[in-house]
Amino acid sequence: MNIIICGVGGNGVILTTRILAQAAINEGFNVRIGASHGLAIRGGTVVSYLRIGSDAKGVIMPQRSGDILLAFEPLEALRQMKLMKDNAKVLLNNEPYIGVDAHLGLSKYPEIEEIISRLSETQELVEIEASKLAIKAGSQVMTNVVMLGSLASSKELPIKRDTLLNTILDMVPPQTVESNKRAFEYGEQAFHEKQN
C-alpha cells in the first residue's frame, strides 16, 4: 500500500507519516518513508510517501501508484494528483493556505471550487473540516490527528483503529492525550457523517 501525506510547512506532515509508519510497524508490516525537506518551515510544500508491506521498496513512489492521499491543504492535494491511482481515496482538510505570493500575483492559487472539482474528477474525495474540528478539540495543532481519525474510519488502512489511536497517544505529550483522543474521535465522526 502507498500512502501520500502532503501539506505545507507547519502542518505536521512528517510527524503524521511517522505515526502511521509506527502503527504499521506495530501491526508487523515493513515500512519505508520517503521524505525530503529543504524549506519546509518557511511555508513551502511538504510531502512524504509511506510505503507499507510489499510496496515498501524504494523511498520514492512511481507516478499513479498511490492508494490513499492524506492532504492537509487543497492546492497541495492537487499537486500530488499525479501520484494517485484512479479512484484512490483522498481525504482533504479543506482549509486553504494562500501565501502572500499568491495575493501579490507571484503564484496562482486556483479557486477552491475548481480544486474540489478537479480532485473529484478522478479520485474518491472526502472533505473533512479538520482544522475547525481540531480547534474544537482544543488546538489547531491537532488537525493531523483529526485527519488520522477520518482515515481510520475509511477502512482503507491495513491498520486496526485501536493500534493507530494508541500509537498516536504514545507519541504525543502526556498532557495532551485527552484532547488528542477527542480530536481523533471528531475525525471519525466527521468521516461517518460524510458517508451518510
Partner: peptide, 9 residues
Amino acid sequence: MLTKRVPAL
C-alpha cells in the same frame, strides 16, 4: 494548473 509556492522569510 500548478505553480510553485514562493518561500518567504
